[in-house]
Write a protein that binds this DNA or RNA. Structure first.
Lengths: 192, 192
DNA sequence: CGCCGAGTTGAACTGAATCAAGAAACGTGG
DNA sequence: CCACGTTTCTTGATTCAGTTCAACTCGGCG
């Protein structure tokens, strides 16, 4: 259950087996079935979630009822409503399993404990968040500079398996267009 | 020169005077005049920059020659091309002073040294980057969910002084519209 | 004085949204 | 294992927010 988390942490920092044993005690393993929610809009985000296996998404629903996907959480990634997790206020996002998933959850108090007791993890999380920030900045700039078609083709070339695992209307709402528009873009692309 | 940095660090972590004296030795103070560049697209981003006083912006120029602003760097904020700084590859962004500014610069080797010698700063930077990530995610979602007019009015209400300090065409390129569009939105707003 | 960057305004255009309808794929219960 | 309802995807017609191109004004500064 903890293999992937152990591997991921070891990729960025050195962690002793003893420290990792301590890490284990603070996480709550959870299986989540497809279409089940880990977090509903309005509820405080009690857990930060590491995805050992499966696939989740975090998304928001606007006034018109349209979904907007902030993030896909694939194996080895973290997913949460960060602001809600840190402050305890009601969440702006929903988090839902797109596949049957195995998760490792940690509460804010446990996370604080963990960072104090295993200070080396500060660096792990700093680098994790740093990479996430870089990726989010890139996505933001892409949304401002390139067309919907380019955003689609780049996404597919970077995450080829996404089109097998995620329904098209969700890919549309990730790149920031309607399902109809993405459908038309795809048919254009296939007719060269 | 280091007052604001000291204050900012002290707001998030406890740092001894001795440690802060050490911090001081690793930064390079620099004054940058209006319209001068700290970083040009293509050059590696050698420094991460703390803004003691003044105002900078980081931006990209697309194939059509349009500017897109990633970030404004106000007093007390950090600014850099993070990816270039961390990896050493050529930068995607330009960084330019919008006002006469006083900066504190640190190189990657010095920053690495700093984090190893003053481990408490890992937490400071983790939290700094965390807040930046939250803000960037919010901006991304706003771009996908609300109209240009709303993005403008929200920006102005959150940073009221921005409209005094930054020319309108840069505000336009920050919210992701052309200068003409922003000009029209503003005249609509003023005629209720 | 003349020039340049910043802002405004108008007209034509366009990429994407919206509204509407139907076809295909899926999965759940009987 | 089939039947039915739901979700997903497609296609067409229309509308709309924002872009593009072009011309003009204003203020500051060398």
């Amino acid at each position: 259950m903890f293999e992937l988390l152990h591997k991921k942490i070891n990729e960025t920092i050195d962690i002793t087996d003893q420290d990792f044993e301590h890490v284990k005690t603070l996480f709550i393993p959870k299986k989540l079935r497809k279409k089940r929610f880990l977090l509903q809009e309005g509820d405080p985000c009690v857990y930060t979630c590491f995805v050992e296996r499966g696939l989740l998404r975090s998304f928001r629903i606007d006034e018109k009822g349209n979904e907007h996907i902030l993030q896909f959480g694939m194996q080895g990634w973290w997913i949460a409503d960060l602001y809600s997790f840190l402050t305890g206020v009601g969440s702006q996002y929903n988090i839902e399993a797109l596949e049957e998933s195995e998760l490792l959850l940690i509460t804010k108090p446990s996370w604080d404990t963990l960072l104090n007791e295993v200070p080396a993890l500060e660096r792990y999380f700093r680098i994790l968040i740093q990479n996430n920030l870089i990726a989010t900045q890139n996505r933001l700039m892409r949304n401002m500079t390139i067309s919907a078609e380019e955003r689609y083709t780049k996404l597919i070339s970077e995450f080829p398996d996404i089109s097998q695992r995620v329904p098209q209307h969700m890919i549309a709402s990730y790149i920031g267009v309607t399902r109809e528009t993405l459908s038309r873009l795809r048919s254009q692309i296939s007719h060269q």
